[in-house]
Write a protein that binds this DNA or RNA. Structure first.
Lengths: 139, 139
DNA sequence: TCCTACAATGGACTAAGTCCAAGTCAAGTG
DNA sequence: CACTTGACTTGGACTTAGTCCATTGTAGGA
C-alpha cells in the first residue's frame, strides 16, 4: 500500500515509528495538507509525535524529492505527495484549497534564453487562481 | 514622475505624507521589495512612519490593483509595482531575488474546462525557479 | 477657521516555522 | 543476544512576518 514508504526505505532511511506515520498520512488520499494538518493526523496514530519531528520529516521528504512543497500565499505551506507525475495547481483564493491540474503546453520552453538573466532555471510552477464552487456558493 | 501617485489621486485617495512616501518608494527602480524593505526606505524619507501604516497602504494598493503581491515562498511577500503590464516571475531559490519575465504562450488557454473543477478561474501565475548568477558564484 | 470622517500610530498579539540541548532508539557488529 | 553509536525525537524557547485595535492626528470640504 505504501509506495512512498518503500521508496524511502530504499534510500537508506532509518525507519522510525514517527517517520512511518508521517509517510502514511501523506500517502492517504488527503492531498495538499498543511504541516499542521499532517501533524494533527499523525497525532491520531501516534500521540507523542512532536511538531518539530513532523517539520523535520516533511523537510527531508521534500529534499529527497518524494514530496513537493507548495506555497501559494502567506498561509501555511502545503505538501503534495504526488511528486512523480508533473502537474500544476489550481487554488481557491478564499479558502486556500488546492487541486492538481494538467494543462497543455510546456511553459519551460516558453522562456527564451534572453529572458533568463544568467539564472540556471530548474523548475516552473504554474498556479491558477480562482474561487472554488464551495466558496462561490457561500458568499 | 509618479504615475502611480497620479493614478491613486485620481481614484479619490486621501493624500497623506505617509501614502505619498510609500508610493514613491514603490515607484523607484527598486522592484520587488518586501514590506519591510518598503518600510525601511520609507523611514529614510519620513522617520515617524509606522510599520502598520506601510502594511495598510500596501494592502490598499493591492486591492486597488495598482500593485501586485508576489509570494513565492514562506519568506516575506514582495510587492511589484509593474501591475499594468502582464508578466511572470523568475525567482532565485537561494536569495529570493525576483525578476520579471515575459514568456511566450498563454497558460490560461492551456487549462481545459474539464480540469477546472467548477472553479471560476481568474488569474494565472507562472513562477520559474533557479539559481541567480550571484548565488551560483558564491556557493 | 472649524469639523469630522478617514488615516496613522505603536504596542500587543498571532501563526507558522526554526533552533537547540538533552534524551531515545534503530540497526549494524561481535 | 547485548552493546554501541550516531542518527532521530522531543518540547519549549525563539524568530519572522504580519494583523489588530484603541487612541491620536489630520486632510480637505463647508
Amino acid at each position: 500500500m505504501s509506495d512512498l514508504l518503500e521508496r524511502l526505505r530504499g534510500r537508506g532511511w532509518r525507519m522510525t515509528a514517527q517517520r512511518r506515520v508521517v509517510a502514511e498520512v501523506l500517502d492517504g488520499d488527503h492531498v495538499h495538507l498543511t504541516a499542521d494538518e499532517v501533524h494533527a493526523r499523525a497525532v491520531a496514530k501516534l500521540p507523542e509525535i512532536s511538531r518539530a519531528t513532523v517539520y523535520n520529516t516533511l523537510g527531508e521528504m521534500v529534499s529527497l524529492g518524494e514530496v513537493i512543497e507548495v506555497s501559494t500565499d502567506r498561509r501555511a505551506k502545503r505538501y503534495d505527495p504526488n511528486a512523480h507525475r508533473p502537474h500544476h495547481h489550481l487554488v481557491c483564493a478564499v479558502c486556500g484549497t488546492i487541486r492538481d491540474v494538467h494543462p497543455a503546453g510546456d511553459p519551460m520552453a516558453d522562456l527564451p534564453s534572453d529572458e533568463r538573466f544568467g539564472f540556471t532555471v530548474s523548475d516552473v510552477e504554474v498556479t491558477y487562481r480562482g474561487i472554488c464552487p464551495n466558496c462561490a456558493a457561500t458568499s
